[in-house]
Simulated assay, not measured.
Amino acid sequence: MQFINFEISKEIFHEEFDKIFTNQPYTKMFHVGDAFDKKYYTRHMIECVNRINLNNELDSFAIQKCINKDNILAKEFTYYLYDEMCHDDLFLHDLKELGSNKEDVLSTPLFFSTELLMGYLNFKVMQNGALPAVVWDWVLEYYGKMYNGLITNKALLHLGKDRTKGAKSHLNTDEVEDHPALMFRIVSRAIKSENDAKLCEEVIRNSIFLIGKYFEELAQSVGLKA
């Protein structure tokens, strides 16, 4: 029995992002328009690297929670984590070209919104098992499919090929391997009840709410209004 489908999940995703875009004009134009600011983009990439590392730890924790409970889920999720490992190096390449070395990137304090997001997700995994992490990874992958193409192409236009090589490679990998579809297949396996489906919707809505807080904080950090 299927308790949630891809189309419903996408509708929830877009409903929540529409709320962000309604209240944050610059965030909207960064995602779907022509807005681009080098400092904003660079700081965004720094946070992405640090969040990737935290996300790998989250997924490792989530896999532990489903081992011997659903080993097929654990195996599929482990494959996804294996595929995601070292993606931070792609962005670190670009950041080095932009003037930020690895040590500076990794020592940059997280935004409070990122701490809230990762704390929330770890707590939900502790409470509920792997499902919240799986759902969050689908949110990340679908976000990438919807917005990263335009963002990366704008960066290429403004910054040049050498400073966007890693981001472009990451984008191509996700497109070729269709990570959004892969993750939703894993989400579908992880959802085993109506309560799981409700948790899935909760995690989509709450994580995107915190993404909105992140983009507010990101803009403020470089002197822009979200």
Rank of each mutant, 00 (worst) to 15 (best):
F77E: 04
D18Q: 09
M29R: 11
F112D: 11
I67P: 01
T108D: 01
L58E: 08
G33Q: 03
V49P: 03
P25D: 15
K165Q: 09
I208C: 06
I4S: 09
G119H: 03
M1K: 04
T42I: 10
E15I: 04
S113G: 11
Q2D: 06
L157Y: 13
A197L: 14
L106W: 09
N71E: 02
N148L: 07
L81A: 09
E103V: 15
G119R: 06
F17Q: 08
R43D: 13
R43V: 05
L121G: 06
E11G: 02
Q220N: 13
N122W: 01
L156Y: 04
S60W: 09
N5F: 10
A167R: 15
V134S: 01
H87E: 14
N101I: 09
L199Y: 11
D162M: 05
S188R: 13
K145G: 13
L199K: 12
L157V: 09
G129D: 05
G33K: 06
F215L: 10
F17L: 14
I67F: 08
F184R: 04
A62T: 07
Q220Y: 10
F123N: 11
G129N: 07
F36L: 02
A130C: 00
L131M: 10
K124N: 14
A190E: 06
W138S: 10
G144Q: 15
V32C: 05
V203P: 02
N206F: 14
L224W: 03
I46E: 08
A62F: 06
F112S: 08
Y142T: 10
Y143Q: 13
T173V: 07
T152M: 04
F209S: 00
L98A: 08
W136C: 04
H87W: 12
E97T: 04
N206M: 14
E15V: 05
Q64S: 10
Y80F: 08
F112Q: 11
K39V: 01
N148C: 04
R43H: 12
T173F: 09
N206S: 15
S193R: 06
H158K: 12
K225S: 14
